[in-house]
Write a protein that binds this DNA or RNA. Structure first.
Length: 878
RNA sequence: GGGAGCUUAGCUCAGCUGGUUCAGAGCAUCUGCCUUACAAGCAGAGGGUCACUGGUUCGAACCCAGUAGUUCCCA
């Protein structure tokens, strides 16, 4: 069979994915093995795969595959999130294209459209994950708005309400005028923008021409002012005690209040107070019992209460009112400043602080265990630096606004009668029974359910419990077996949104953590360091990348540039490197596959040694790879595997055992060496499998006849053998000889085909001839002999233990040799000097650890003998 | 405004308990090779004041203080 020179992912990926599915290798059911569990951070149901998903799902798959091979019952639960505000926004936009306004639809009709949309686009992202090779147990796929999960959300709401943890009240919330809903503090993104600071003068009430000047960035809110506030210690305004001022345009008289909240330095030291449209002003209003005039409606346009500009947008009004005030002569000056403005995470609209009736979850007590157990290490955040951020947030946590003025989501199970009685329960019938106790004449038709839905995170915070039916069936087999889960892999941007809240819910509802380790990936940025986003159009399409480089190539590329916890600057070239690596492995297979074996051939000494060496090397590297995995240093584990394969296996081992080529044909290889090589190849495929599932599965089946079930995905992870590592040290010396001779070839322009002679003069230690055959082969030598005297007319080099001579057919360049040896001599003399001065330092000798001093003495001796050898050679040349 | 982190080769990053001439890896670059598995390859080479300034120490990329730049979080 002709095997192509390059690896083609297209013919393997779909084939093996289907094969794995068919054989149910991803499927997990509780058994006697230890579980290893990951729940996927559920992507937005209508979303498409982006680079961030690529990164964290690759990491999850690597972990799951490795644990599966290590004998754990590995279970990776996939699913999607209903993402209320984002999805609703998309549905609204889609309807608008069709000429339908949301406001013209009933709740039921709208939800019908939304479900249609979900059915149509809901599966895309999960299908894309399959392309990546994700080994999720697809039979367990969940959706945060499916019946069981919604029921859990409602139960939790009712339970927390009964416990007194949920309350309803009028509070200042972050209002998204685009999405027409409240959003939580976490959903507001503060950005620094260039603004103008307007200095506006207000007339003191009862005076002819006495004024006070305030500074504001939001003049459109002037119409809602109900006070002016100054600092009690401010000399400039002491005389204004008990005075009132006139609000421009509306001509309302409002008090001047005094409060230490005021920053004397900012603006004029006088603040206009608009309790309806600023959180700080609101707090001042509460404290000083001020009137609240809500001048901006839910859609960001001026309300009736504003009296002017009614129905016009707040930003249009900002310009207009400035002009009008200018005409009235009340603008004193305008300054450019930078300030922070809050934007909605979902719609990017400027957030309007707004008073409204919302539901809140008290966070102070419920969050305690979640803080404690991260601080004491029961739950590990990786990298650790996030513990600080987490701690800070948890210690300053605010009550969580959980109601959203949307339809797509779980409707709040609160019921009202016509006399403002409220009950919280599952059904209207229950509500009727309960309300009857408060209002005996009530009719069931008079009962109305709260219009709002719950924040999406109020369902996803239950995810690790609800995907195992932990609410429906708290003593169930699944929840008992899989919970707490092991690792959670996600981005730090949702540390508070999601991770913290899952931990809270875990302790509240299971009394146990939801997961043991949280691996926080970096954020994927482009080469210029910008976050990849749709708006910027700087994100490559992951599916296109997979087509170009293969899923294995992209997985490797992704991880190569992903140091734990740091943002990663993604560059397509690392995917190319990944693809090249696939090809390297492919060709290693082609080489081995092309060998003929000879059962009668005697095993060469060189091969025997090579096998011993690689066996030891493999174990050493495996140990290190296992260790890196345990520390979640994924990119380093990958790099160690990469070097093990490329350098140790391909560049050294295969070169050492490669049969000689005679008359255009490779000689047969002895059976023993061949078999050992196959075993090694299987081992390295196993180590690579978590990173590169497709090519390793393909080669696993090409290297040996296997039955359908014998797949690498379920093969056993290699075990560590204890080996004598002395051979590794010996090999260091062998490699040094080899690289010196290659260097000579390069410098002297000698073809690798030309055979050379090599002589060794041993200076110290025993003569070890074990490796001679290897050196002969790797250096293409005609002979390798030991001598007692230096060889004249030869190029030489000096290693720690010996001197080497390579006679050349061409004349040696005396000048060049002198220069080279002198350079080497100087280097060693410098080294010697530094060691000598260290040893001459009495404080070093008396304070440093004895091993340290001993080591220095040894270095001294080595350097001295080496210098002696070089000097002799130099003398010989002259 | 408050807090946390980062700064090591052209790029992306390792460097653990201060100790080997400790300054490293991968990529990129340069040079030479279509050598018989792989040019998506092989062989070789160059490249850094470890941000800066002080301090502690026999010894500092590493510990401490300050400065600058930068990123993130919170308000």
């Amino acid at each position: 069979m002709e095997i192509p020179k390059t690896y083609d992912p297209k013919i393997t990926e779909d084939k093996w994915y289907a094969h794995w599915l068919k054989n149910k290798f991803f499927k997990s059911i509780p058994d006697e093995r230890k579980p290893y569990t990951i729940v996927i951070p559920p992507p937005n149901v209508t979303g498409v795969l982006h680079m961030g998903h690529m990164l964290n799902n690759t990491i999850q798959d690597v972990l799951v595959r490795m644990k599966r091979m290590q004998g754990y019952n590995a279970c990776w639960v996939p699913g999607t999130d209903h993402a209320s505000i984002a999805t609703e926004a998309k549905v609204v936009a889609l309807l608008k294209e069709k000429g339908i306004n949301k406001t013209d639809l009933s709740r039921e009709d709208f939800l019908k459209h939304a479900w249609e949309w979900k059915e149509k686009y809901g599966g895309i992202i999960l299908k894309q994950l399959e392309k990546l090779g994700a080994s999720c147990d697809w039979d367990r796929t969940r959706f945060t708005m499916e019946d069981d999960l919604s029921a859990a959300v409602i139960d939790v709401f009712i339970d927390l309400h009964n416990k007194g943890q949920i309350y309803r009240g009028v509070r200042m919330v972050n209002w998204d005028p685009e999405g027409l809903t409240a959003v939580s503090d976490e959903e507001v993104i503060h950005k620094e923008v260039n603004s103008k600071l307007f200095y506006v003068k207000y007339k003191i009430d009862g005076t002819a021409d006495e004024w006070i000047t305030i500074a504001t960035t939001r003049p459109e809110t002037i119409l809602g002012d109900t006070a002016i506030c100054v600092h009690p210690d401010d000399e400039r305004y002491k005389h204004l005690k008990d005075k009132r001022v006139i609000i421009p345009m509306v001509n309302r008289s409002v008090p001047i209040i005094f409060d230490t909240y005021i920053d004397l330095e900012f603006g004029t030291g006088a603040l206009k107070v608009t309790p309806a449209h600023d959180i700080n002003d609101y707090n001042l209003g509460v404290k000083h019992n001020l009137e609240v005039i809500d001048t901006i409606a839910a859609n960001g346009k001026m309300s009736e209460a504003a009296q002017f500009y009614i129905g016009e947008d707040r930003f249009t009004v900002r310009k207009k009112i400035v002009k009008d005030l200018e005409d009235m002569g009340q603008i004193v000056k305008v300054e450019d400043i930078k300030n922070k403005v809050g934007y909605s995470e979902r719609t990017n609209a400027v957030i309007e602080p707004r008073l409204s009736m919302q539901w809140f979850l008290k966070m102070d007590t419920i969050s305690k265990p979640a803080l404690e157990n991260v601080l004491n290490g029961e739950i590990k955040l990786i990298p650790e630096k996030f513990v600080n951020t987490y701690k800070h947030w948890m210690e300053n946590v605010h009550d969580w606004c959980i109601s959203r003025q949307l339809w797509w989501g779980q409707q709040i199970p609160a019921w009202y009668d016509n006399k403002s009685n409220t009950v919280v329960c599952r059904t209207k019938e229950e509500a009727f029974e309960k309300l009857k106790l408060k209002n005996s004449v009530i009719k069931i038709e008079d009962i109305k359910q709260d219009e709002d839905v719950l924040d999406t995170w109020f369902s996803s915070w239950l995810w690790p419990i609800s995907v195992f039916d932990g609410f429906k069936n708290p003593k169930g087999k699944d929840i008992n077996y899989y919970y707490p889960t092991n690792d959670l892999v996600t981005g730090p941007d949702i540390l508070f949104f999601w991770i913290a809240r899952m931990i809270i819910a875990g302790y509240e509802y299971r009394g146990v953590k939801p997961f043991s380790n949280v691996y926080l990936t970096g954020i994927v940025r482009d080469k210029q360091g910008r976050k990849m986003s749709k708006q910027l159009g700087n994100s490559p399409d992951p599916i296109e990348l997979i087509e170009k480089y293969g899923a294995d190539g992209v997985r490797v590329g992704m991880l190569l540039c992903a140091p734990a916890g740091n943002d990663l600057l993604f560059d397509e070239s690392t995917c190319e490197q990944g693809r090249n690596f696939s090809n390297k492995i492919w060709n290693a297979f082609r080489l081995i596959n092309g060998w003929e074996t000879d059962v009668n051939a005697k095993q060469l000494d060189a091969n025997k040694i090579a096998i011993q060496w690689f066996d030891t090397k493999f174990n050493e590297q495996l140990e290190s790879i296992n260790d890196l995995y345990s520390k979640y240093r994924m990119s380093e584990a990958l790099m160690a595997s990469y070097k093990l394969v490329w350098d140790d296996f391909c560049a050294w081992y295969l070169e050492m055992i490669k049969p000689e080529f005679v008359d255009g044909k490779s000689l047969p290889i002895d059976k023993e060496t061949y078999d050992a090589t196959i075993v090694f190849f299987e081992k390295i495929l196993k180590v690579l499998h978590p990173f590169m599932p497709f090519i390793t599965e393909e080669l696993w089946h090409l290297i040996k006849e296997r039955n359908e079930k014998d797949c690498i995905i379920v093969a056993e992870w290699p075990k560590i053998k204890i080996e004598n590592k002395v051979i590794l040290n010996h090999f260091e010396a062998v490699m040094e000889v080899v690289s010196n001779i290659r260097n000579i070839r390069k410098q002297k322009n000698i073809s690798p085909k030309e055979k050379l002679q090599l002589f060794e003069k041993v200076n110290q230690g025993d003569v070890i001839k074990t490796y001679d055959s290897i050196i002969i082969k790797l250096c293409n030598l005609s002979s390798f002999d030991y001598v007692h005297q230096k060889v004249n007319g030869a190029i030489s080099f000096v290693l720690k233990h010996a001197e080497f001579y390579v006679p050349l057919s061409q004349n040696i360049d005396l000048e060049a040799e002198l220069e080279r040896l002198t350079k080497d001599l100087n280097y060693n003399k410098g080294f010697l000097k530094s060691v000598q001065s260290k040893l001459a330092n009495e404080k070093f000798v008396s304070n440093a650890k004895p091993e340290m001093v001993e080591n220095e003495r040894k270095k001294l001796a080595d350097a001295e003998s080496k210098i002696k050898a070089i000097e002799e050679q130099l003398a010989g040349l002259k």
